[in-house]
């Protein structure tokens, strides 16, 4: 860990202004950032602690949905009765992630911003374009069993590790932010995370200093909510793949978002009109470029979808 300076922000706009300076970063739960700092994968020179800004409530939004404060802890969000009743897929996704201790610390905004678990990203001896732009991608041609199969680039095949974000993608959440000038904006979750392209170190639509203040969920869509996380051990493991499904919503087609496939929560709305698992998987994974080690994810998506559809039909 490199020495850094530290301040406690007094307002979201002040936090954004402080974090806009080169080398500055927000810290909230710290469950990912601190580990990365210890390894010097992240080397911020200044930390802006946003933990005392409030932003930790879940409130009804004007249009019948929910506004989740950026600092609502994962545990609190998963346990909220409104979330459990109306957005079950989100509660289930949260509870499938990390461990109880981590969920107690981890925040809603921080969860969206967690970095990849690609093992080469974590080892500063190895090339990694995400960690050190231009150094190359050790994962390509290396250990890639857990990595992305779609939306990859010649520079990066990392995945986004969040479960929560996958459910939010299925629910069409919106990320609300404020910048240093106090100006706020709303970013649809679909546009929030980026594909790696040739700038894999740029992971989101956020501008320097721009701070997430809340995530809003639209009015409940009804239906049967399932989050299926496929993993190598029963708990405390990142998804090999995951499926966030809303089946039989009050209106429109079912929704399917996927984790463990890409640099962002993966959802192809056009695939949702397909009638069966095979069709949905084929459409959602069109253009996939798996490695030999992670090609198993392609059939696994279809098989898991079949399981989810069967579970939904029985529900």
């Amino acid at each position: 860990m490199k020495a850094f300076t530290y301040e406690r922000a007094t307002s979201p706009a002040a936090a954004a202004a402080a974090a806009a300076k080169p080398g500055a970063k927000f810290i909230a739960g710290g469950t990912n950032l601190l580990d990365l700092m210890k390894l010097q994968v992240e080397t911020p020179t200044h930390l802006v602690d946003v933990n005392r800004l409030g932003l930790d409530t879940i409130e009804a939004s004007g249009d019948g949905g929910l506004r989740i404060g950026a600092l609502v802890r994962n545990t609190a969000l998963a346990a909220d009765p409104r979330v459990r009743r109306d957005y079950g897929v989100l509660s289930r996704a949260l509870l499938s992630g990390a461990s109880g201790q981590l969920r107690n610390k981890a925040t809603t905004a921080g969860n969206l911003l967690q970095r990849t678990r690609c093992p080469y990203f974590y080892d500063t001896n190895q090339p990694c374009n995400k960690r050190k732009p231009g150094s190359g991608c050790a994962a390509i041609g290396g250990y890639s069993r857990a990595l992305a199969v779609i939306g990859t680039s010649a520079d990066c095949i990392a995945t986004h590790p969040s479960d929560m974000a996958v459910a939010m993608r299925a629910l069409d959440a919106t990320v609300e932010t404020v910048d240093a000038s106090g100006k706020s904006r709303a970013i649809p979750i679909a546009d929030f995370h980026r594909l790696p392209g040739n700038t894999p170190w740029i992971e989101t639509a956020l501008q320097p200093g721009e701070m997430i203040t809340s995530v809003t969920l639209p009015r409940p869509v009804g239906g049967t909510h399932i989050y299926r996380k496929v993993r190598d051990r029963a708990s405390y493991a990142f998804a090999t793949i995951s499926v966030a499904a809303v089946l039989r919503p009050d209106q429109g087609t079912p929704r399917f978002a996927f984790g463990g496939l890409a640099h962002k929560p993966w959802r192809v709305e056009a695939a949702e009109t397909q009638r069966d698992a095979k069709g949905i998987a084929a459409a959602a994974l069109a253009g996939a470029t798996p490695t030999a080690q992670n090609a198993y994810k392609i059939p696994l998506v279809e098989r898991t979808l079949a399981s989810v559809l069967a579970e939904g039909a029985a529900a």
Partner: peptide, 8 residues
């Protein structure tokens, strides 16, 4: 798991 191959 007959679908996913997960072993418990």
């Amino acid at each position: 798991d007959a679908h996913t191959g997960e072993i418990r």
